[in-house]
Amino acid sequence: MEHGNDFVISTQGLCKTFSVGGVQQHVLNNLDLQIAEGDFTVIMGNSGSGKSTLLYALSGMDRPTLGKIIFGGEEISEYSNDKLAKFRRANCGFIFQESFLNDNMSIMDNVLSAGYLSKRPRKQVYGDACKYFESVGISKDMYSKFPTQMSGGELQRVGLVRAIINDPKVIFADEPTGALNSANSTAVLDIMNDLHAQGKSIVMVTHDIRSAIRGSRVLYLKDGVILNEISLGNYDPLEEKSRLDKLKCFLDEMGW
């Protein structure tokens, strides 16, 4: 899917400053960005460039120091913590580098603990969870397993199911394959591409080129500003080689 005309997220003059040991660190600097609905946006950049900070700001997990974030037509930058929490449950799904599942709950409970926050009937939520689990290759006999009893790839797939259980407007993924081996990474990225193909907007932070080529648009972040971006179009496995070359070329230009 190409860029749509409707922006699901846009930012104006976004700034984020951290104070570390009394020293101000400007992680995001007056950043303007638009993300179209149905887009698979990849954010790349060197370590400390502000990728994750941008992702967390866009998703309402963190508040900017300055600037506006407009999400689905609503300015969320001034929301209170509780309003942001309610906003996230309705609009955002998250996939983290570490699965960040609750070790004291079964994988089904981890998913349902997010799903039951929606207003949908519980049966429907449970049905969706089963459906999504099946789609990511997790069988019914594993539902009652705990995170400590599963492999990294399985955990990330559970995290993915949890991210989509409430049918969010945007899925935010922070280095989703960072802790996975090649086979598990491919499996997770395939699922994400399937979701994108179904019309989901995805924003993913990664430093892995093989993951980045799955996106339709790649932004390059440096010192808290978007240095440049490249459009790759929708992912097609057959075009993987050419996408890789194109992206490598782009990244070389960016000095990566």
Partner: peptide
């Protein structure tokens, strides 16, 4: 994690 998922304080 709960808060990220949308749980309030």
């Amino acid at each position: 994690i709960y808060k990220a998922l949308g749980y309030t304080t």
